[in-house]
Amino acid sequence: MAIKLGIVGGGVMGEALLSRLIAQQLYRPEDVLVSEPQAHQRDLLARKYGVQVTSRNRAVAAVSDILLLAIKPQVFEAVAIELAEDNGERPDKELLPVVVSILAGVSLSKLEAAFGRQPVIRAMPNTPATVGAGITAIAPGKTVSKSQKEQAIAIFQAVGEVVEVSESLMDAVTGLSGSGPAYVAILIEALADGGVAAGLPRAIASQLALSTVLGTAQLLQQSELHPAQLKDRVTSPGGTTIAGIAELERAGFRSALIEAVLAAKERSRQLGQG
C-alpha cells in the first residue's frame, strides 16, 4: 500500500487540513491514511472524504511518506512510542517519513528524540484553518531537506498563509496566532454586547460587530496600513471614536491583550516541559 500522507488524529484540526488538501487536489483520497481512535469519526472521515482509515497509529507510520501528527500534546509520548522508526513494520528503513507535528509546546528536540533518524518539522496552525483562512508558523528540524520543507509548506498553504520562524519563537507563535482567535472572539462578543447595551437588537449588534472586525482586518491587509494609521484616520478631533479609545485605554485594553499573549506563551512553554 503506497500512502503519500498519513494523518495521526482525525479531530478538528486534522479534519480541517484533510478537507482542504482533498478539495484542492493536493492529495487524492486513496493516497491518504488517517488513524483515529473514535470509531464514529473514522466512519465520518471515510464516508465524507473517501480516505482510508484505521485505529492503529503504527499502521500509518509503516506506510506513509509524510506523517502529520494532529493529536493532543498530552498523549504525545504514548503515541510516539507506536510511531517511532524502530517499530519493525516499515519495509524500507531508508525511506523514513518526514514527521510534521502541530502539537502545542512539543519542541523539536523532543520530537527528534522520539523519532530518531526521521526528519521532523514543528508547525503551529490556528483554528481559522478550518475555513481556509488560517496562518501557520513552521520550524524545520536540522535534518529536514528543502523538498521536505516545501512539502510541509504546501500542506499548510492549503489552509491559509505560512511563515517560517526559528524554533525559539514557536511558543510566542502559540500565544499570538494559536490562541489569538479566542481573543478576537471575545472582542467580537464584547462589541456586540456593547451594541445591545446601546439599544441595538442582538442580531444586528452581532452582525455589525463581526463585519466590522472582518472588514477592518481585510482593509489593513489589503492597504498595508499600520494599525495606528488606520486608527488615526477613523479618529477625528473631539469625536466619538477618540471618546471610545480613551475608555479602552483607561480599562487597560491594550495591555490586557499583551499580557494574554505572554500568558499563553508561558503556558505553551510549560506544556513542552511536562
Results as ranks from 00 to 15, higher is better:
72 K>C: 04
151 Q>P: 01
139 A>R: 13
79 V>I: 13
98 V>P: 05
144 V>F: 12
52 Q>K: 12
65 D>W: 02
71 I>R: 07
116 G>F: 08
156 F>V: 07
129 A>V: 02
84 A>W: 08
66 I>N: 11
62 A>F: 06
170 M>L: 05
113 A>Q: 15
167 E>C: 04
64 S>M: 09
75 V>M: 12
141 G>F: 04
128 P>K: 09
129 A>K: 03
114 A>T: 13
150 E>I: 00
118 Q>G: 03
145 S>W: 03
156 F>E: 06
131 V>D: 00
61 A>G: 10
110 K>V: 06
67 L>C: 11
152 A>C: 13
51 V>Q: 05
118 Q>M: 15
143 T>S: 15
106 V>L: 12
89 E>R: 13
58 R>D: 10
161 E>G: 05
72 K>I: 08
118 Q>H: 08
89 E>P: 00
66 I>Q: 14
77 E>F: 10
160 G>K: 08
91 P>K: 06
42 R>I: 05
54 T>V: 03
106 V>N: 10
95 L>Q: 14
126 N>A: 12
174 T>S: 09
124 M>D: 07
154 A>S: 11
163 V>A: 06
82 E>S: 08
155 I>K: 11
66 I>M: 13
49 Y>V: 00
97 P>T: 06
177 S>C: 10
156 F>S: 04
163 V>W: 02
143 T>E: 15
92 D>T: 00
109 S>M: 00
121 I>V: 14
103 L>S: 07
136 T>P: 13
148 Q>L: 01
180 G>V: 11
46 A>K: 14
110 K>N: 10
166 S>L: 00
168 S>K: 14
105 G>L: 06
67 L>I: 09
132 G>W: 06
70 A>H: 09
72 K>G: 01
164 E>M: 04
166 S>D: 13
96 L>R: 10
186 I>V: 04
107 S>N: 05
131 V>H: 00
115 F>H: 11
134 G>S: 13
87 N>F: 09
159 V>R: 02
85 E>Q: 14
114 A>H: 12
80 A>D: 12
106 V>A: 09
174 T>L: 08
52 Q>N: 08
98 V>I: 09
123 A>M: 05
176 L>R: 10
90 R>D: 03
130 T>W: 00
43 D>K: 10
136 T>E: 06
161 E>T: 07
178 G>C: 11
126 N>F: 08
139 A>V: 03
172 A>D: 06
45 L>R: 01
160 G>V: 14
160 G>W: 11
58 R>E: 12
96 L>Y: 03
118 Q>S: 15
75 V>P: 01
141 G>E: 13
182 A>P: 01
172 A>H: 02
65 D>E: 15
56 R>C: 02
157 Q>P: 03
46 A>N: 10
143 T>Q: 15
121 I>G: 11
76 F>S: 10
152 A>S: 14
131 V>S: 02
90 R>E: 04
86 D>R: 14
129 A>N: 02
93 K>T: 11
71 I>P: 07
64 S>F: 07
118 Q>V: 03
171 D>F: 01
107 S>R: 06
73 P>S: 08
116 G>M: 10
58 R>L: 04
176 L>E: 09
104 A>R: 01
169 L>D: 06
42 R>L: 01
176 L>Q: 10
79 V>M: 07
103 L>M: 15
175 G>K: 02
139 A>K: 05
117 R>D: 12
127 T>R: 00
121 I>C: 11
100 V>M: 13
